[in-house]
Write a protein that binds this DNA or RNA. Structure first.
Length: 327
DNA sequence: AAGCCAACCAACCGCCCCACC
DNA sequence: AGGTGGGGCGGTTGGTTGGCT
């Protein structure tokens, strides 16, 4: 099935990094003849490369209008916003960023933005709060370990420390769940970018992260970046050429993504409770993404509550702890 | 100084789409 | 209408680089 590779007929074609000489040949040839046919171009240029490789080298590196260097904050916001609308359509996203190639944007997304969103507790694919429950599982494991240890080694100070840690974790979990219950604002990428709490999920769980420290450790830089994004409004979308055009008639990406001014102003008014709307985002609000990708959104919520129930059940043997907290 | 590791990014691969015959 | 070829796209790989121990 499928077509054979364009250059399969000649296994002697060169692959790998381009030399300056090859670059020069390619540029000269395109300047002289243009690139009418990529397949014919290598022969014309005197290159032992396949046409596809030439095209890639030209479009991703040698084209004169390519803008190199670091992405600006504005470019980054445009990428995030467009990705929320378009998904991994890198070439479509690149069309809105003059001088940037799809490959460059894709790399930047995978190496920088993706990590930033994960840091903020946002799923980079759905642009919604992460729904993996590794944190809860870890917490549960910690609780099990502490309880088991307590049973087996009642006099062991190390296990007592574990028990203390587990109780601290419980306290934080309870406090954060109460906050969430009292929170009812819609979740969008931009409310997270504008949030004062850049680690919504981590905040919920009091920092029992399962990602590596490098990936998730709150850094001054991250916090600064997030704070700097608080000025973002829907004008970021307005600044784009016309994202609506992608969807033909009737698609209102602003309202579907919760990007209208009302929701934005609401989100900024609630800065006294910076936690994300983990509950309302999936139980209440239904964005277009929700509607098209519902299958990924239902199970995690119930699992969160199951984990919560499990915690309560585990503590039922000794209910005094919860009585103390609730009092 | 050497080795290890993580991050970055250029380039490749395989598939898809579309124009042309 | 169906086959074929070329170009384009998105995912992935692997080489390079820089930081850390």
């Amino acid at each position: 099935m499928g077509r054979s590779p364009c250059c399969a007929e000649d296994a002697n074609l060169k692959k790998g990094p381009w030399t300056p000489e090859e670059d020069q040949k390619l540029v000269d040839c395109i300047n002289k003849h243009g690139h009418g046919s990529w397949r014919a171009l290598p022969k014309l240029a005197g290159l032992n490369r396949c046409g596809k490789s030439c095209r890639l080298r030209w479009t991703n590196y040698l084209r004169p209008d390519i803008k190199r260097g670091k992405f600006t904050e504005e470019e980054e916001r445009v990428i995030i916003n467009l990705h929320a609308v378009l998904g991994n359509k890198w070439s479509r996203i690149a069309a809105h960023l003059p001088g940037r190639t799809d490959n460059e944007i894709k790399n930047y997304w995978n190496t920088q933005i993706r990590k930033k969103l994960l840091n903020m507790g946002i799923d980079p694919q759905t642009h919604k709060p992460r729904t993996d429950l590794n944190h809860l599982l870890n917490l549960s494991q910690l609780l099990c370990a502490s309880q088991l240890g307590n049973l087996m080694n009642p006099g062991d100070t190390a296990f007592k420390l574990q028990v203390d840690a587990a109780q601290l974790a419980k306290t934080q979990l309870l406090q954060n769940l109460l906050k969430i219950i009292n929170t009812n604002k819609p979740a969008t990428v931009d409310t997270f970018l504008g949030s004062q709490n850049p680690y919504p999920i981590e905040g919920l769980l009091g920092g029992t992260s399962t990602l590596s420290d490098k990936e998730l450790a709150p850094t001054p830089e991250n916090i600064t970046n997030n704070a700097g994004a608080t000025s973002q409004t829907s004008t970021d979308f307005q600044a784009l050429e016309d994202p609506c055009a992608y969807f033909g008639n009737g698609f209102n990406y602003e309202s579907n993504l919760g990007m209208n001014n009302q929701s934005l102003s609401n989100s900024f008014e609630q800065t006294e409770n910076p936690l994300p709307e983990l509950v309302s985002a999936s139980l209440g609000q239904t964005s277009s993404i929700n509607q098209t990708d519902d299958k990924t959104e239902t199970a995690p919520d119930s699992t969160i509550y199951e984990a919560w129930d499990k915690l309560i059940m585990e503590d039922e043997a000794d209910g005094s702890y919860w009585k103390e907290i609730l009092e």
